[in-house]
């Protein structure tokens, strides 16, 4: 039962991403051509609302469900890691039209061929795990 809330949140996320066409390859292509506000609106709204929610939470020192105070874990600073990793991710995102959430949601909409994208993504993660000590971070 402790996992039911995550199933419901996932269900909601899948419905929203499908209904707002965020899972569409065409919407990603359109975004990278700067020919529609749609995707920028989705991401922008989420970030602005996210900033407001987080700042309010920190100010009011709201605790999570387990009683621990909610804090922001700062990420380690680096340029190469985020920039190079980000560029590689972006190349794959624009070509497949799917980031790691939508590739699963698309399975639900009936595209079995996205299994190949998922397989590639698992393989890419695996190869990173093996190579990571040789890469600049």
């Amino acid at each position: 039962m402790q996992y039911l809330k995550f199933l419901i949140l996932g269900l909601l996320l899948g419905i929203v991403m499908t209904k707002a066409e965020i899972i569409s390859w065409f919407r990603i292509y359109e975004m990278f051509r700067f020919e529609s506000f749609h995707m920028y609106g989705v991401i922008g709204t989420a970030i602005i609302l996210g900033i407001i929610l987080m700042q309010f939470t920190l100010k009011k020192q709201i605790r999570d469900i387990t009683g621990k105070p909610i804090i922001i874990h700062s990420k380690n600073m680096s340029i190469s890691r985020y920039l190079i990793g980000g560029i590689i991710f972006g190349l794959g995102w624009a070509l497949s039209g799917a980031c790691p959430g939508p590739m699963f949601i698309l399975l639900g909409t009936g595209y079995s061929s996205v299994l190949l994208v998922i397989l590639g993504a698992i393989l890419g993660t695996f190869v990173y795990g093996i190579m990571r000590n040789k890469l600049p971070h």
Binding site: G85, I87, F89, L91, G92, W93, A121, I122
Partner: peptide
């Protein structure tokens, strides 16, 4: 997919 997984 490989690029997405590796890059992420």
């Amino acid at each position: 997919g490989f690029f997405v997984g590796f890059g992420a």
